[in-house]
Amino acid sequence: MIKFLKLYEKIGIFILIVAASVFLAIVSPNFRNLNTILSIIMQGSYGAIIAFGMTFAITSGGFDLSVEAIMGFTSVIIAMLIPSLGFAGSIIIAILASCFVGFLNGVLITKVGISPLITTLSMQVILRGASLIITNGRQVVISQKSFMSIGASKVFNLIPTPIIYMVVLFAIFYLILNQTSFGRHVAASGSNEQAAKMSGLNVNLIKTVVYILVAFSASIVGVIRTSQTLIGIPTMAPGFTLNVLTIAILGGTSLAGGKGNLTGTLFAGIFISMIYYGLNLLNVQIFYQMLAVGITLLFALFIDGLRMKYLETAKVKGIRV
């Protein structure tokens, strides 16, 4: 069983993707077309990018439920500031403001000692309210059409820009998690916080940086989505937090903390997008997507639960895994 779980951890998500691809290629002629495939990957990039940050949070032993509110917050700041500050200025301020929200999350969790669940759930409600206050409950239209080039254009007339952002961010996050001491410290804080503290790590600082990274990744997606619609939407992407959590856990990052799998996260993001595409083929209502993501999350949890259970048994029996 442990062998199966180890195998699943390494290639499980690939098998899911291959199975889904074969299935879609059979039932949908459209799927055998490069543009469709790129469009599916692009749709998956939004969840995947935020899930990179979420993977860090889960690896550090926490998680962040405020990401969808951060997307909306970014969106309204950009829409409000673009007329006076232009593209670069408004984007930078929006991302910095979001990072500050991540910093607040981190401080409340590490310094005040409120659990990640309560902190980020409250932050979600507060930030949603704040975004609605900023725009007075309205959606704000952005008149500069050229702003669309950020998220809605194609490189070489082929690859949508969000895919490029996803690949670049994946490379950065991957290097941070796997090649830097900071990445190892994040994992150490998540697998045994006490031990990490004893060995002299500044766990509070590490975790705070992690929540800033989550907010940063959510903010990037906020920028992309705003650019595509040219509207500042305070209530952007309701329920998207579930997608992000599902992607991170499905990708093989264990809720027990200490172990992040960014490659898995990347492919899980694409897999979820394939599910959506498949459901669209069936012409079902949008609620079925909600149902499908919920069920996928339970499946991912089931696998994660099995893993924790068998790792525990292995530990008791003294087997090295």
Partner: peptide
Amino acid sequence: KLKIPAFITTLGMYFIFRALAYIYTNN
């Protein structure tokens, strides 16, 4: 049975129950 923190299991249920309510009533 899943041996997973309850909040995350019930977070999944949060979406499943709501989706079923929509689907059952056709909104």
